[in-house]
Computed example of a mutant assay.
Amino acid sequence: MQSWLLLGAAILLEVAGTTCMKLSDGLTRLWPTLGIAVFYLASFACITLALRRIDISIAYAIWAGLGIVLMSVIAALFFGEAMTPWRMACIALVLAGVVGLNLSASH
């Protein structure tokens, strides 16, 4: 269970780091730029520890897939990016892939 919590933390920290990329305005703003480094280092530490108990193919797919989904939602809500039906369908496909990979790990 701890490994899954670490994976969840890794996802949230990666999303925070990516959000800081946008907020850094091309690395011109100090605090968001520092946030990129801090959040990504913490994310990599968490996923590395999670890999002790979770297969890398599963962990990485979940980390990347859920990161994409969360960033898409944040981009739409906070940065005014369009959430078109096509984008929502693609996000649903990413989620389906993450769920499918996760279910395949239990067999």
Rank of each mutant, 00 (worst) to 15 (best):
M1Q: 05
M1T: 09
Q2P: 03
Q2M: 06
S3A: 10
S3Y: 00
L6N: 07
L6P: 12
L7F: 07
G8W: 02
A9T: 07
A9H: 03
L13W: 04
G17S: 15
G17E: 06
G17R: 06
T18Y: 05
T19K: 08
T19W: 00
C20H: 09
M21W: 03
M21A: 08
D25H: 14
G26H: 14
R29C: 12
L30W: 00
P32R: 10
P32K: 03
L34C: 15
L34D: 04
I36H: 15
I36Q: 15
A37R: 01
A37S: 06
V38M: 14
F39G: 15
F39E: 03
Y40L: 01
L41E: 02
L41A: 05
S43N: 07
A45E: 03
A50R: 00
L51Y: 04
R52I: 04
R53C: 03
I54M: 03
I54A: 06
I56F: 13
I56N: 13
S57Q: 08
A59V: 01
A59F: 07
A61G: 09
A61R: 06
I62W: 11
I62C: 07
A64C: 13
L66P: 14
G67K: 02
I68S: 13
I68H: 14
V69P: 12
M71G: 02
S72Y: 01
V73I: 09
V73Q: 13
V73Y: 03
A75E: 01
A75P: 14
A76W: 12
A76P: 09
F78E: 01
F79S: 11
G80R: 14
E81D: 15
M83D: 07
T84G: 10
P85L: 10
A89S: 11
L93Q: 01
A96Y: 10
V99P: 15
V99T: 05
L101S: 04
L101T: 10
N102F: 03
A105L: 03
S106P: 08
